[in-house]
């Protein structure tokens, strides 16, 4: 399906109608609150594989949708589990 994004409310629409939003992931291993704060603010997993992310349908329903995408190919994938 690639960069046509399926909106559960509006249907599939071009990526140009959407705004990408990241869902930050801070590793549990970072216990120090200050280090967690810095990691959440700046660091990125930059996943080379399946990423969970949010897209805002700006030109349609104006709501966030959560999707899973393979960052190597830009293909949409089913939520794991």
């Amino acid at each position: 399906m690639s960069l046509r994004i399926r909106c559960p409310h509006c249907g599939p629409r071009s990526v140009e109608e959407w705004v990408h939003g990241e869902i930050p992931v801070v590793p549990d291993a970072i216990a120090d609150p200050d280090a967690r704060d810095v990691d959440r603010g700046y660091m990125h997993t930059n996943e080379h594989g399946v990423v969970r992310e949010a897209w805002f349908h700006l030109s349609g329903c104006r709501r966030w949708v959560t999707l899973w995408r393979d960052s190597r190919t830009d293909e949409w994938v089913e939520p794991p589990g």
């Binding site: 990408h20 080379h48 960052s71």
Partner: peptide, 13 residues
């Protein structure tokens, strides 16, 4: 492109 990606596929957009 606005979304992070390792894809090097070009788009028509």
């Amino acid at each position: 492109d606005r979304q992070p990606s390792y894809s090097r596929r070009s788009t028509h957009d």
